[in-house]
Amino acid sequence: MTRYLLRRVWYMLITLFIIATFSFFLMKILPGSPLQAEDKLSEEQKAIILEKYGLNEPIPVQYAKYLGGLVKGDLGVSFKFDNTPVTTILMDRIGPSALLGFQALVVGSILGIILGLLASIFRNSPIDFSSTIIAVIGTSIPSFVFAGLLQYVFAVKLGWFPVALWGTSAHTILPTIALAIHPMATAARFTRTEMVEVLHSNYIITARAKGVSETGIILKHGLRNALIPLITVLGPMAVGLMTGSMVIEQIFAIPGIGEQFVTSVMVNDYPTIMGTTLLFAFGFIVIILIIDLLYGLIDPRIRLAGGNK
């Protein structure tokens, strides 16, 4: 197990290195410069600024310096935000994004699993059809449409929650709902499909032949087997949610990573863009590792395969 984990960590580092390299050179190819909006600066002033940030050095030197910083955990200094280190910016911003993402993931997957379960139990009933409709709406309509709708109904008309901004837990409710709809729809769809299949398998008949009640069959024998494929889908979704949904954060004016990312792309703030990209990548890799470990917890067949190596 320890060897397995160590190997996975080693792979993670390699992956991060490749992503850092790619994003660095992509930044160099990107048209425009951080100074393109600063018309009032003279050529001399611009040269001084470029010198200060090391942008006039040859690209291989810049690359080496960047990698050197990365090893020390230094993501560089933001061009835009008052020379703040990128790490500090990300640290400040990750909180709201992670909180929202976590809430949305928990709410969305729990509701989705319940919805899917109900649909599979009462198959071809009105419950099933409504669940399908909810799932189709949830997957096909983008979350910003829901966000606007939620703001209008619950904030503007009813006044139950604040329209936007960040502060109290009341501020988190509307964006959480807007973010949760997509994972909920996906979870509902997957749970239903998997449950229907699982409920037709032979071991369910065995359980019935033992005299297990219908509730026991669904919760004890069915759900666990149905959840295995669901984890594969919810994992990557979790990364997307936790590292911030750019659009939702813009709409609700939430000081999160997503909002930050959009701004930094607009102004060619290279270090911040690269830092955020690395953070996304890191989150993604970590979540995939967690999923693999979770698989082992839920599916004993996989646990053994991993343990043997």
């Binding site: 065995t206 033992k210 599916d299």
Partner: peptide, 22 residues
């Protein structure tokens, strides 16, 4: 449910799939 497994029980055809894998 009270009779199945207690008064009458059953052995199935395919042992590979008639046990819960998890």
């Amino acid at each position: 449910q009270k009779i199945r497994g207690k008064d009458i029980s059953m052995v199935f055809q395919d042992p590979m799939s008639s046990l819960n894998p998890t």
